[in-house]
């Protein structure tokens, strides 16, 4: 998974063509840590989606700029536009279903 920060966020996400998934996480967020391996697993299944993660401890303002104020949150962008947003009570199965939807 591509590690995002304020230097590359614009280029890799907002100006990027196609599907981009961003996993907003923090090492202090236990549910995020539980989710991360599942997201990594899904990365192998959906090759047409660019998988990225953003550590909010280091990039707080960037996350708030995307209106993310809670963890775990996963946003899928298409051509830089938000098309799916999952926050708080979602499972990796929910995420897989959404990925199937957007890649169909």
């Amino acid at each position: 998974m591509l590690e995002l920060n304020k230097e590359n966020f614009e280029a890799e996400v907002l100006s990027s063509k196609g599907l981009v998934l961003v996993d907003f996480w923090s090492p202090k967020c236990v549910p995020c840590m539980e989710l991360l391996p599942h997201v990594e697993e899904l990365e192998g299944k959906f090759e047409q989606v660019k998988f990225c993660k953003l550590n909010i401890l280091e990039n707080r303002r960037l996350a708030i700029g995307q209106k993310v104020m809670g963890l775990p949150t996963i946003i899928i962008y298409r051509d830089g536009e938000k098309i799916v947003e999952l926050s708080k009570d979602f499972t990796h199965e929910d995420l897989e279903a959404k990925l199937n939807e957007v890649t169909a």
């Binding site: 202090k28 967020c29 209106k67 104020m69 809670g70 963890l71 949150t73 926050s87």
Partner: peptide, 12 residues
């Protein structure tokens, strides 16, 4: 929820 409404201080 997740946009400023939270039930978990350590998470957010």
């Amino acid at each position: 929820k997740g946009k400023g409404v939270s039930y978990c201080a350590t998470c957010d």
